[in-house]
Design a protein around this nucleic acid. Sequence first.
DNA 1: CCAAAAGTGTTAAAGCTACACCCATGG
DNA 2: CCATGGGTGTAGCTTTAACACTTTTGG
Lengths: 212, 212
Amino acid sequence: MATTPTVATIVAIFAVAEGRLQVLLVHRTGEPEAGTWALPGGLWDCNESLNESATRKLVQETGASDVYLEQLFTTSGVDPSRAAVAVAYFALVEASAVRLREEEAWRPAWYAVDELPPLAFDNNRLIEQAVERIRAKLDYTNIAFGLMPSEFTVRELQNTYEAILGEPLDRRNFRKRMISTGLIEATGKVRREGAHRPAELFRFTSREPVFL
Amino acid sequence: MATTPTVATIVAIFAVAEGRLQVLLVHRTGEPEAGTWALPGGLWDCNESLNESATRKLVQETGASDVYLEQLFTTSGVDPSRAAVAVAYFALVEASAVRLREEEAWRPAWYAVDELPPLAFDNNRLIEQAVERIRAKLDYTNIAFGLMPSEFTVRELQNTYEAILGEPLDRRNFRKRMISTGLIEATGKVRREGAHRPAELFRFTSREPVFL
DNA sequence: CCAAAAGTGTTAAAGCTACACCCATGG
DNA sequence: CCATGGGTGTAGCTTTAACACTTTTGG
């Protein structure tokens, strides 16, 4: 092995669309593992912090801002031909605010996390661990704010939770908990749509990470 | 900055002694920050995985085996003179099984986590975050097995918990929870000491990490 | 007036907290 | 027999889970 290691950042970018939790994949053009799907990432250029590097990757791919970004873990030896360290992150973005790059040769695309193709390196395992962490944190943090627009109905928020957890929740208990924890608050506005009672609009009381 | 980054591993090694949670510090002899206290660590030599590197550091300092070791996070730019990445770990060891290196110039020593001197780099913050994580995980994992001998009384285990949490716990509720979660089980043996009823000895049902 | 989604309260079960007395031993 | 720490059960409270009807609107 070389004695000058390379450092890369990898970002697993998640969004909820079509009622399912999806992750952004790109088609690798360079070696190694050219031709397979993988998580977006690249070499750290040493002129920015690791967090900045991950944020930059995220913005490049999605154009998203006001996003939840968290470090997952760091692995070594992903690439057997040289000494390498990969710092993995995950991010939660609002699907409707994303504009994928279309001009790129590596065609970014969303994949539902429960129907992934075999990915480069250990990216499948990485995504599994990220999903596990997101599910756990849904319970006791406001992590979901990254996935939602600034105003939303309780039903829309519940749909997001159900997509991530993969199981239905009770509407009454869900509303009660969300409001009583203080994570969300009513805006006073309503949204009329369709032939039924209008829904109240809510917002997160904080768009900074909060723990309960 | 240089374009060939260095990668270091840092290990915060914890033990409970004298009823308090302690962390192992070494006295830095080299630049930068020579003369200050810091967490043990060193450059990654690219011929082992990061986990192996951290484990090796741990064994060098303590001689401990059968230890709980977990990655905390990775930071960049700890050392302003060159591009650097530091991968931080924490470990929980049994105080009585540790033999500190005495011949070394940098004199390793235990410090109670609530009475730390100012440390090199951002080591104070790192330790704070490690302690936070350990406290949280005490509740829903068997993480404490790393701190205990293979057999112990319920009271000894409770003393360890109280040292980490920094608050007293109810004896009856503690015993009930520990046994009912299945994390510990009676060995059938007792320990006689002093003029009172002998204490039953317990062991962890698993010495691999378990989540509840 | 009908269909469709929004909004709301109560009850039972489980889990957690607080608390006081008897037990086994060594001296 | 006495001092010391070890071991045990219960009652109140809080939290969670399950569940059905009324409201508001558009067509």
